[in-house]
Amino acid sequence: MSAHVMTVAQIREAEGVAMASVSEDTLMARAADAVAAEAEMMLADARGRLAGARVAVMVGAGNNGGDALLAAARLQHRGCRVTAVMVADRSHERSRLEALDAGVTTVDATDYPHIAQMAVERADLVIDGIVGIGSSPGLRSPADALVASVGADTPVLAVDIPSGLDADSGAADATHVRADATVTFTALKACLVEEPARASTGRVIVADVGVPRR
């Protein structure tokens, strides 16, 4: 695992440099490939196979949720039964359409909280794509209730950082996701290496998506 740590500001600057020659869609596709690959490994460890595995993807409004939706599409194509649980009133549109085209089921956690919670409770794997590195610490409704409903033995995979943590800090006093693994992009963030936040990240995989490290 890379020991290089970058701040949110450094990541944003580096992404700006990368997008001068690589499209945002390409970067997101690479991120989704990395998330889907780790999800496959976790499901293989937990169930021995992908076919029929129930995956609940908690999806927020930003690009983090977009990455998760693209990963959901990939897992659906590979035989999983994926439900995208939408925790915001909007989502990354292109990623949502790709997930729908792949056959991913979507449920609005605000309008249908019981169905959303059931999808999370019954999942063989939960993917956390609620918020990313630019978010404030803590989780709001309905995300907080969904996170609380994850089964004690259900593996959780976080996209970039566990939602609810402060990317630039080791603090962990706000409501947040506790992951068994985290696929982070480009470089480590402070919350992935500093305690007590580090205890909630699980195994950390640094995926190179084509953004230069600073």
Rank of each mutant, 00 (worst) to 15 (best):
G132I: 03
A44M: 15
D128Y: 08
D208T: 03
A143T: 02
A84I: 02
G62T: 11
G134S: 03
S135H: 12
V177N: 06
H77R: 14
E15A: 10
S135G: 14
N64Y: 08
R178Q: 13
L69N: 12
S23G: 14
A109I: 11
S149R: 13
G210A: 01
L97S: 12
I127P: 05
L43V: 05
P196Y: 00
M6D: 02
L146R: 03
T106A: 04
A174D: 13
T105F: 05
A123I: 08
R47A: 14
L43R: 04
S23T: 14
A39G: 13
D33K: 03
R47Y: 15
A73T: 10
G170P: 11
V211K: 10
R78K: 14
V131K: 15
P162N: 01
R213E: 09
K189E: 02
R94A: 15
A88L: 05
E194D: 13
A207G: 08
A119E: 13
V107F: 02
I11N: 03
R122P: 03
D89V: 07
D89F: 08
V206H: 04
S200L: 04
G129H: 06
M19T: 04
A73K: 05
I127R: 09
S135N: 08
A181E: 04
C191E: 06
A158M: 09
A61Y: 01
V156Q: 13
C191D: 07
D153Q: 10
H4S: 11
S135I: 00
R96F: 12
G134P: 15
L188I: 00
L100D: 10
S169T: 15
L70C: 06
L43M: 06
V85G: 10
G52T: 07
V177I: 15
V55I: 06
A167I: 14
C80S: 10
I130E: 05
G79V: 06
A9Y: 04
E13P: 00
V150C: 09
A29M: 10
R78I: 00
F185T: 04
D153N: 09
R213M: 03
A167H: 12
A39F: 08
A14T: 09
Y112I: 05
D25T: 11
H77M: 08
T26Y: 04
A20K: 11
R140K: 09
E194P: 07
N63H: 11
L192V: 05
G134F: 01
D160E: 10
D124A: 11
T105A: 03
A187I: 07
P113G: 07
C80A: 07
G65P: 06
V126N: 11
G65S: 04
T186I: 05
E194F: 00
M42L: 14
V107Q: 06
Y112P: 01
V193P: 01
A99K: 11
A152D: 12
R49D: 14
E40R: 14
A29E: 15
M28P: 05
P196T: 00
R49W: 14
A148W: 03
R12P: 01
G202L: 06
T182R: 10
M19Y: 01
E13D: 12
V209T: 14
T105M: 01
V17Q: 12
L157D: 15
A174F: 10
D128N: 06
M6A: 02
E24N: 05
Y112Q: 13
S2Y: 02
M6Y: 00
A39M: 06
R198S: 05
L188K: 05
D45I: 07
H77K: 12
A36F: 01
V131L: 15
T186F: 09
D25I: 05
A172S: 09
L27C: 00
